[in-house]
């Protein structure tokens, strides 16, 4: 399965970024092969508006089925839903590898509604 982890830096060893919409990097990881590719989200980060929506679009284009992150605003949530992408929720910052392990061990709850106030953040 292909999952995206929102990350504060370029590798899975780095701590995750808790905010989906304005995450600095997306790391696309394949849970079967363990292969990971990094995608720089800087362009969306500086979008005039709708950063969360753009991020959702990016993640959809990367072909992810699940996003592992800390918070998702209402617009990004709506967009991820429309793309059929599930959201696995982390309650605190941890390295990407740890997030991935916990996801595989089914320790992470699935988010069923937006959990941050959107608009510009």
């Amino acid at each position: 399965m292909k999952v995206v982890i929102t990350s504060s830096n370029k590798t899975l060893a780095d701590p995750i970024d808790m905010h989906f919409g304005r995450a600095k990097f997306f790391i696309l990881a394949d849970t079967e092969t363990g292969k990971a590719v990094v995608h720089d989200n800087a362009q969306n980060l500086h979008a005039a508006q709708g950063a969360g929506i753009q991020s959702a679009e990016t993640v959809a284009k990367l072909g992810a089925e699940v996003v592992i992150t800390g918070s998702v605003g209402p617009k990004a949530y709506k967009a991820l839903q429309a793309a059929g992408i599930k959201i696995a929720l982390l309650e605190a910052v941890c390295p990407g590898t740890e997030a991935l392990r916990r996801f595989k061990d089914k320790e992470l709850p699935v988010l069923d509604k937006p959990n941050s106030e959107g608009h510009w953040v």
Binding site: S116, E117, G118, H119, W120, V121
Partner: peptide, 10 residues
């Protein structure tokens, strides 16, 4: 308006 919302959100 939008600047205030941006200042308050979160």
């Amino acid at each position: 308006g939008c600047p205030v919302i941006a200042a308050l959100t979160g």
